[in-house]
Design a protein around this nucleic acid. Sequence first.
RNA 1: GGCCUUGUGGUCAAGCGGUUAAGACGGAGCCCUCUCAAGGCUCAAUCCCGGGUUCGAUUCCCGGCAGGGUCACCA
Length: 547
Amino acid sequence: MDYIKLAATLIPDDDLLPLEEYEKMYPERDVPKGAYVTRLAPSPTGFIHLGNLYSALADERIAHTTGGIFYLRIEDTDLKRKVDGAVESVIRSLKYFGVNFDEGAEIDSPLNCYGPYYQRQRARIYRAYAKNLIERGLAYPCFCTEEELDAVRAKQSENKEITGYYGKYAKCRNLSEEEIYKNLAEKKPFVIRLRSQGDAANKITFKDMIKGEITVTENDQDVVILKSDGIPTYHFAHAIDDHFMRTTLVIRGEEWLSSLPIHLELFSLLGFKLPQYGHTCSLMKMDGEIKRKLSKRKDPELSLDFYRKAGYYPTAVVKYLMTILNSNFEEWEMKNPLKDYREFPFSIGKMGKSGALFDIDKLNDVSKAELANLSAEQTYDFLNGWVREFGTEKDKVHFDDKQYIISVLNLICGIGGKKRRKDIVRAESGVKMLDYFFDDTFAPDYCYRFSNDIVNGVLNAFSEVYDPADDNSAWFAKVKDVASQFGFAAEMKDYKQNPEMYKGSVADVAEILRIAICGMPNSPDLCTVMGILGRERSLARLKAGLR
RNA sequence: GGCCUUGUGGUCAAGCGGUUAAGACGGAGCCCUCUCAAGGCUCAAUCCCGGGUUCGAUUCCCGGCAGGGUCACCA
């Protein structure tokens, strides 16, 4: 068969460059020895999620700890699934979490010499190489319809055979020249398939950077490389793009492992040097008794917006992911509490081989520890940023009074004290924690554990002696006085020794005051709370607390 | 179902032929304490099962079992 003629008929484009030109146009990158060139290649189908961040973080860390390059490529070959604004959203989301690209789609960088970074704009390269494969007899047109393919697949699974387009099932693989031109004359739509040279009986051992040695079966599937609209499939685009963008390390989800044989064959047939691969395990979650991959559809915690809305500190999410990515990260951080996580010697070899269950408790712990590193000013800025975007109208008004919020934060965070408190897990709950410092959001639950007589007596007695000028010990001495006055033990030790002699202890008296002032039995240092509220409001609340 | 892959406490996991089997989160308790946090201390809890190989297997091999992934003109 005249493959040259066939290629010219199938791909008549006259604007294709000779193959060597592409090699010259996209030369090997000038990066230091040992540096990795990595990439994130999402399809613009919607919004980026935690799994993407997880993988992007690995890419970014590896590139940047080795002095390499991390770029963004957009896999928009499936126009059915395209969503507007998705690219900007990817960049913005990742930037929010501190993950930045060196080059790529919509990135303003002098490094952008390997573009275009949108696959739709790279049609000429794909077509040039597809044409070359046809010329070499390594690819052919296939006129099978969807229905035919479905029927074959159904038959195969019925016979318990491997499904797909291969061997005797590859109907169009051996079409005669006349049949091809006849179909073409009839304007039948066609795809271009690879004429696989592989044999499924052969096993190949492959070294994955994350998974280690794995054995794969040689590809024998005549996969589609160019769809009927002339756009390449993922497999073909991957080989061409990662070669010409000079990616040296492809990090992608483990769901790609099963199509690795296809890529191996493609790289080989195209004469490209194979990049290294690292297949990451997926983030899992428990769904009842079942452990399953986190799903975009079902699990809101997969969406990155979820973390922004909940007010997680971005670095906390990143650090949580780091603990999963490299399990020695936590230990390193304990030894180097002041260092930026970017100084951690990230290692691809230390990445886990099996899927980790997403652990919200752990995230919360990381998050509150992270927030506890901030000054009151920084905490204000972070909470304020959240309030402006997600807070209620009342929250916004409250946050207009920066000085007041700062004084509250100093107390809540224990800043300046001996022990830093870690009350704020995330902005949403942190802001809510401030409610009782404002009269319009003060929602008391007067859950006293003593009779109204005692409660009223304590409240009235304390109101009379309360003096905002008192320091902490003077304030507490007065609480003790009130305690003795009403038959409560002023000293905890006394109470513990002879509990039957008292109605309760000074702790119980403080609780009564606390419920009146804060509307709940727990709060940071009450004396300071009253100081922040001021004399008028404190007295008003003591009065309002009467039963 | 075929193929690939993983299996250490509830979770994330070190260890990779001989260990009292790290550490972190979570849980329980104690201390501290005006409560709650925070902090300090302590405790409970793990090598999937069965065969080998070996003086000795959590570690190596084989077989089960269980989980996960994948089998498109989607990526």
